[in-house]
Design a protein around this nucleic acid. Structure first.
Length: 378
RNA sequence: GGGUCCGUGGUGUAGCCCGGUUAACACGUCUCCCUGUCACGGAGAAGAUCGAGGGUUCGAAUCCCUUCGGACCCG
């Protein structure tokens, strides 16, 4: 992998660049489309490309549990397996340490929306998995068997999957974790980062992951440590504070400490209103489930805001999802009325129509950000 | 002519035999939520004078009588 910066903004930390991989180039800033189980859910790989997606991210834990990395490797790797010709990433499974652990226990995401009375302190373990020095043991949600995943295991799996860019195994800490827990978790994530670098035998690009929660000292410490290692790029993970301004501030701390010559990937962020802010804060790429996940729950993102296509009022609405949208769903004449009907009738076509539109909309937003960055407006 | 069973929110049911706080459940409806993914998910709300009328009782969806509607059996 090769990263070249074409332009640095004078108004913000944003920059314009190109990531070159063995499977093609990606202009940055770029949105990475989520394909957890080697599929952009409800779409074919060709359709994802037509919706404007250039770079996909699949998941180590999910593919390890099903179908197993050996099946993917035997098929010729992720690209051939899912018939995707463009660049790909795999996430390391570090997020699953959180989502199957404290995230599940406390019913919270990475962003703390309401105050949580309990806080996570040193020595505490989640209910369904145990986190140790060498990795994490958890129960498979598929067949209930115990599975061990650590930095070595994650790298071995990601090598077999064969994405162009892979991530170091980390612990994504909960918003409820206190300073001491977050600091100790961070030290362990740093030790795991070294193990990942030593374990990797392929030419795949490896990104190290910065953690540190909402704490400025920890974020800066983590960025300095990870930034000093021989990674090809950097992931910024973990929780992102209590609100949007806290999130961009936090990204700023990290970006200030990271080397400038390598790409920065913001893990798991990207509501429409976040995209420009995150680019200005210095992110080159970012992945997010929002366009595809919300589509399957009936939410369309449009230039005029969100629509919930489950609501019966749209049965009478014969407008396209977004009058300003040029995607093949809107342009072909599919109406809100029809898509609303499909959702209420539980027709699966509803899911793919909305997924396609949402992806096109989000990719268009990022295209716009890139254009304005080129013109010096951001 | 004789007999049996059923009738509870939009839909399907539970409760009835052994009467007792705001009639329960599923689906549906409505509102809100979902940021390194859980389509088949989370939280909340609205919605039933328990077919109708009468009786017994401190108290009836529950017991008794009558009546209406539906299904069925025997002649």
């Amino acid at each position: 992998m090769e990263f070249t910066i074409q332009k640095r903004s004078k108004r913000s930390r944003a920059r314009l660049g190109v990531i070159k991989t063995p499977h093609g180039e990606v202009e940055t800033p770029a949105l990475v489309t989520v394909a957890t189980q080697a599929s952009v859910k409800t779409l074919t790989s060709e359709e994802a490309g037509r919706a404007g997606s250039r770079l996909l991210i699949a998941n180590t834990v999910h593919l390890h549990l099903k179908p197993g990395e050996r099946v993917v490797k035997a098929a010729g790797g992720l690209h051939k397996f899912m018939n995707w010709r463009g660049p790909m990433m795999t996430d390391s499974g570090g997020y699953q340490v959180f989502s199957l652990g404290f995230g599940r226990d406390l019913g919270t995401g990475k962003i703390l929306k309401q105050r949580i009375s309990a806080s996570i302190t040193t020595g505490q373990q989640p209910k369904l998995l145990s986190i140790g020095e060498d990795g994490v043991e958890f129960t498979s949600y598929i067949d209930g068997r115990r599975v061990f995943l650590g930095p070595k295991e994650s790298i071995r799996i990601q090598e077999a999957l064969g994405a162009d860019i892979i991530f170091a195994f980390d612990e994504c800490t909960s918003p409820a974790a206190d300073h001491d827990y977050t600091a100790r978790s961070l030290e362990r994530t740093h030790r795991w980062a070294r193990v990942c670098l030593e374990a990797k035998r392929t030419k795949q690009a490896l990104y190290g992951v910065v953690q540190g929660g909402k704490f400025e000292d920890l974020r800066r410490r983590s960025a300095k440590f990870i930034g000093a290692l021989d990674f090809d790029g950097f992931g910024i993970g973990g929780e992102f504070g209590d609100d949007k301004s806290a999130m961009t501030k936090m990204i700023g701390w990290v970006v200030d400490e990271l080397p400038e010559d390598r790409p920065r990937h913001l893990l798991g962020i990207g509501h429409p209103e976040d995209i420009e802010a995150v680019v200005k804060a210095g992110a080159d790429t970012f992945d997010c489930t929002v366009p595809t996940h919300y589509a399957r729950h009936g939410t369309a993102f449009t230039s005029a805001g969100r629509l919930d296509l489950n609501q019966s009022r749209y049965l009478a609405d014969r407008a396209p999802l977004d009058r300003k949208c040029s995607c093949s769903v809107c342009a072909a004449g599919y109406t809100r009325s029809y898509i609303c009907h499909l959702f209420r009738a539980k027709e699966v076509t509803a899911l793919s129509l909305l997924t396609f539109h949402n992806l096109h909309f989000f990719n268009g937003l990022v295209d716009g950000v890139r254009r304005r960055l080129k013109r010096g407006l951001i």
